[in-house]
C-alpha cells in the first residue's frame, strides 16, 4: 500500500512528461496548432480597417442647407461598437454663442459662474444633439440592469474619442511645452492630440455648443460639455476641478458603486472621477489629486 502511492505517482509523472515530449513529433504539433490564426488576424485587420473607414469624415455628412449646419459625430465605444449621430444646428446661434463667451466679464475667481453661464447659453443650441444621443442610446438596447452605466459610457466614449486639443486664454500662446506634452501652433483637431488653440477668452474654455460644433477642447471644455449632455439626460453629474493639478474631469455620483478616487460637492456629495481627455479611459481610472471639488453640479 505504501509503495503504491509512490509507484502510481511516479508513473503519472513519467506518462505526463512523455506526453509533453511527444510534441517533438511534427505531426502531433501540427495537429494541435490551429492554422486559423492567419485567417483570424486577417479578419481582425479587415474589421479595424472597416471601422477606420466608417469613422473617417464623409463629405456627404456635412452637406448643409443655407443657414443650417449639419453636424455629424462618429465614435467607437468601450466595447468596440460604432456609433454615428447627425443633427442640424442654426449657424447663427453658433456664432452667437462664441460672441457671448468672449463678452463674459470674468475676473478669474468665479469659475462656477463662468461654467454656469456657458452652460445656460449652450443648452438650447445643443437640444438636437441631446435628442440624437438619446436616440442612439435607445437604439443600442442596453439591458435594463446595465443601461445606466452603459449610457454614461456611451457619452464619455463619444467625448474621449475626439483627439485632445489644448485651449489657452490670452496669457498662453502656441506652440508650447506643457508638463504633459508639446503642442503645435495649429488650432485644429489633430490625430496625435497636439493641436493648440490660443486666445480663447475667458479662461481658455469653449462653450459646450462650440465643442459640439468644432470638437476642439481640453479638460474643462470636455467636462463641461459632457456635464451638460448628461445632466439634461437626468444623470447626477458634476464638473470637477483640482487646483492642485490644474485639471478638470467629469464627476459622477453613483449610489451603488464605489471607486477609490473621488471628489465632493460643497454639500459633501461624493462624485467619482472620469478622465475625458484620453480614449477608452473608464470611470475611476487615471485621475490623481486629492483636492477635487465640484465647480458645477
Amino acid at each position: 500500500m505504501e509503495r503504491q502511492y509512490f509507484n502510481r505517482s511516479a508513473l503519472v509523472f513519467f506518462i505526463l512528461f512523455g506526453l509533453v515530449y511527444l510534441l517533438c513529433i511534427p505531426f502531433l504539433a501540427e495537429k494541435l496548432f490551429s492554422d486559423r490564426v492567419v485567417k483570424e488576424m486577417e479578419e481582425e485587420q479587415a474589421q479595424a480597417q472597416k471601422a477606420e473607414d466608417w469613422l473617417r469624415e464623409d463629405p456627404a455628412d456635412t452637406a448643409s442647407k443655407p443657414g443650417v449646419k449639419k453636424i455629424v459625430w462618429k465614435w467607437q465605444d468601450f466595447d468596440g461598437g460604432l456609433h454615428k449621430i447627425s443633427f442640424e444646428v442654426d449657424q447663427a446661434k453658433l456664432v452667437d454663442v462664441s460672441r457671448f463667451r468672449e463678452e463674459i466679464d470674468f475676473d478669474g475667481s468665479n469659475i462656477s459662474g463662468l461654467y454656469s453661464n456657458l452652460n445656460k447659453k449652450s443648452k438650447e443650441i445643443m437640444k438636437p444633439m441631446i435628442e440624437a444621443m438619446k436616440e442612439e442610446i435607445k437604439k443600442s438596447g442596453f439591458p435594463s440592469d446595465e443601461a445606466y452605466m452603459k449610457s454614461l459610457e456611451m457619452v464619455a466614449s463619444a467625448v474621449q474619442y475626439i483627439p485632445y486639443t489644448l485651449v489657452l486664454d490670452n496669457s498662453g500662446k502656441c506652440p508650447c511645452e506643457m508638463p504633459f506634452g508639446s503642442f503645435s501652433s495649429e488650432c485644429q483637431v489633430q490625430e496625435d492630440g497636439r493641436g493648440c488653440c490660443a486666445g480663447i477668452i475667458p479662461f481658455g474654455v469653449y462653450a459646450p455648443a462650440e465643442f459640439m460644433d468644432h470638437r476642439k477642447g481640453d479638460c474643462d471644455t470636455r467636462s463641461l460639455f459632457a456635464y451638460l449632455l448628461l445632466k439634461d439626460m437626468g444623470f447626477d453629474v458634476a464638473v470637477m476641478i483640482s487646483m492642485q493639478k490644474g485639471h478638470s474631469v467629469l464627476g459622477v455620483h453613483l449610489a451603488n458603486k464605489t471607486y477609490p478616487d473621488y471628489g465632493s460637492s460643497p454639500g459633501g456629495k461624493k462624485y467619482y472621477l472620469w478622465e475625458l481627455t484620453a480614449k477608452d479611459m473608464p470611470l475611476g481610472r487615471g485621475v490623481d489629486g486629492s483636492d477635487w471639488k465640484s465647480a458645477l453640479n
Binding site: 509523472f13 505526463l16 490551429s34 490564426v37 483570424e40 488576424m41
Partner: peptide
C-alpha cells in the same frame, strides 16, 4: 496562444502538475 487556443492552457497545466507532483509526493 492564438494557434494553440485551449490546448495552451492544458499544456501549461500539465507542466505545472509535473513540477508540483514531486513536491506533493
Amino acid at each position: 496562444t492564438r494557434g494553440l487556443g485551449n490546448w495552451k492552457w492544458i499544456l501549461d497545466f500539465v507542466v505545472v502538475i509535473l513540477f508540483l507532483l514531486p513536491y506533493v509526493l
